[in-house]
Design a protein around this nucleic acid. Structure first.
Length: 211
DNA sequence: ACCTGGATCTTCT
DNA sequence: GAAGATCCAGGTA
């Protein structure tokens, strides 16, 4: 990885899903289409592991497991939740494993007017403070399922100012394997989607415990 | 074929 | 705080 290239390379995503989930905090998510460009700073992610993680689609959905197991790291896994909302994941896993990182919230950086139009909202904090919201704000749909986020020209990640402090807590809206603290967000950010009991600031010591 | 359960968001009260 | 919108994949038959 060179210092010059703002984009993350394939190897960045070919590592532990949990590590990637934490290190994506502070990075920029960029989406471009004919309407313009939108950019957000990632402030919240969740890690979903392979078949051993009961909350993961990899454990429940046969097609998805087959696909995401075969996918190279750095590709987009987009699915529809609750019939309405699109969810953006990036495949992130060591070779031979399964896993993906759900992008849950962004702080708007550029293209705010376009975001406001798409969201039909003016409040900055509401534009991307949730996985469904940010997909709507950036124009990400099921059509983006399977696109390459490393070499693609539609959606990609760039390095950003690293976050100063990470808080970890239980993932949102799941019932199975809910006790795992695999949701990560920038401590104190006003753009995160929600708060739950059991959130703890990640210290260097507890960081080790998370793998 | 039919039923069910969601990795959600908005709009009420 | 509660419920409705809305759809897909998996399981069961």
């Amino acid at each position: 990885m060179s210092e010059q290239d703002p984009r993350f390379d394939r190897a960045f995503f070919a590592r532990s899903t949990i590590k990637v989930a934490k290190e994506l905090l502070g990075a920029l998510l960029v989406a471009e289409d004919r309407w313009g460009m939108t950019v957000g700073r990632i402030v919240e992610t969740e890690a979903y592991l392979g078949p051993t993680d009961a909350a993961s689609h990899a454990a429940r959905l046969k097609n998805v497991r087959a696909k995401s197991m075969g996918w190279e790291p750095g590709f987009a896994y987009v699915y529809r939740s609750m019939g309405i909302h699109a969810m953006l994941n990036v495949v992130a896993k060591p070779p031979g494993a399964a896993g993906a990182v759900l992008i849950r919230a962004l702080a708007p950086v550029a293209g705010e007017e376009l975001m406001k139009e798409r969201r039909r909202l003016q409040e900055r904090k509401q534009l991307c403070s949730g996985p469904g919201k940010l997909c709507q704000a950036m124009g990400i749909t099921l059509n983006d399922h399977g696109v390459d986020l490393v070499d693609g020209e539609r959606i990609w990640f760039e390095r950003g100012e690293p976050v100063k402090s990470i808080t970890a807590g239980p993932r949102i809206g799941i019932s199975k394997n809910a006790e795992q603290p695999w949701r990560f967000f920038e401590t104190g950010s006003p753009f995160v989607s929600a708060h739950r009991r059991g959130e703890v600031i990640v210290t260097p010591e507890s960081l080790e415990a998370l793998r």
